[in-house]
């Protein structure tokens, strides 16, 4: 069977579609003239709200796998779901979000079929003969373009924030259940428990605002104020490697080469000098604001707005002013 069309893997969390999954429909819309209609694959357990949302985003068809096996992200289980949908759809291109799960599943499915996986891409073009994907390399310091022939299908994971999720259209997709048979081999690695992030805490990688404390804040106690500032800005709190190495904050909050990659609308760095190890994890941020005593810090050069001052003198004022504005 000739491959055509686009399969979009919609990852869910707690029944809702992840924002990064919805952005995939923006990517699919941009290349569907070349490749053909879009089929969404919505996977999880108790995912009716996600299905309803996805059905208006431009897909012709929505395949639903609502199964207790799929309640949690386990790579082999989700790969089986995508492989099953692949057999049904025979897609020319399969899109997944560039999440921890999406990256695993994309690589597993691509390897099973002997087709390329364009990992963590920031743009995608399709010509009559080729797929062309641009992706960050050297820890996002540089970009490269990767090409592959259209003689084979392809799989791509798309970096968060690359495409915009389309506005819901009046068109309603055809919704069908897809039954997936899981083998014992798919369940060799199984989830035993999950330690969720505290409620209300915004996920660093998806946060619209990220406040980061560096070694320049002087000590772990400074983070209580930064946490207040973060909450007022509706963001997530991060730190540099120096800070997590000193044990002031947990590694899970570290941004950079050996930590998380963030691309928020607003990055606010406090006492962060901007070592390369850190900047590779945040340089995609839309607006960069820096509060630092040192006017020669590398991050000051990257900033859209740099405030050269002792953070102790400005952060408490900033918190007070934001509180006033919010009327609390």
């Amino acid at each position: 069977m000739q491959s055509s069309g686009i399969l979009v893997f919609v990852e869910t969390s707690g029944g809702a579609a992840r924002a990064t999954s919805l952005e995939l429909f923006g990517a699919a819309g941009a290349v569907q003239n070349a490749l053909g209609p879009v089929t969404a694959l919505v996977v999880g357990h108790g995912i009716a709200p996600a299905v309803e949302q996805v059905a208006t985003l431009g897909a012709e068809r929505v395949l639903v796998v609502d199964d207790p096996h799929c309640a949690h992200p386990v790579a082999a289980v989700m790969a089986r779901v995508v492989l099953t949908a692949w057999d049904v759809v025979q897609p020319a291109l399969t899109l997944l979000p560039s999440t921890t799960l999406g990256r695993d599943v994309a690589a597993l499915v691509a390897a099973r079929h002997g087709v390329p996986h364009f990992a963590d891409i920031v743009s995608l073009d399709v010509t009559a003969e080729q797929f062309l994907a641009t992706r960050p390399v050297y820890q996002s310091k540089l970009l490269t373009t990767v090409r592959a022939s259209r003689a084979r299908p392809a799989v791509a994971t798309i970096r968060a924030g690359t495409y915009r999720a389309p506005e819901p259209s009046g068109q309603q997709a055809r919704v069908e259940d897809l039954t997936v048979a899981f083998s014992p081999a798919d369940q060799r690695a199984r989830m035993t428990r999950m330690v969720e992030k505290p409620r209300g805490q915004v996920d660093l990688e998806n946060a619209p605002v990220v406040v980061v404390g560096g070694r320049g804040v002087g000590g772990p106690e400074a983070f209580a104020q930064l946490a207040q500032l973060t909450e007022l800005l509706g963001g997530a709190l991060g730190c540099t490697r120096a800070v997590s190495d000193l044990g002031w904050r947990p590694h899970a909050e570290q941004i950079g080469q050996t930590g998380k990659q963030v691309r928020p609308r607003l990055y606010l760095g406090v006492g962060v000098s901007g070592a390369v190890q850190h900047t590779v994890g945040m340089q995609g941020s839309e607006t960069i604001v820096v509060i630092n005593r040192d006017p020669n810090a590398p991050l000051v050069k990257m900033a859209d707005f740099a405030l050269i001052a002792d953070w102790n003198e400005v952060v408490p004022r900033l918190i007070a002013r934001l509180r006033e504005r919010r009327g609390r």
Partner: peptide
């Protein structure tokens, strides 16, 4: 370490 927290397998 994944998006929603720490998962044990």
């Amino acid at each position: 370490e994944i998006e929603d927290g720490h998962q044990f397998q």
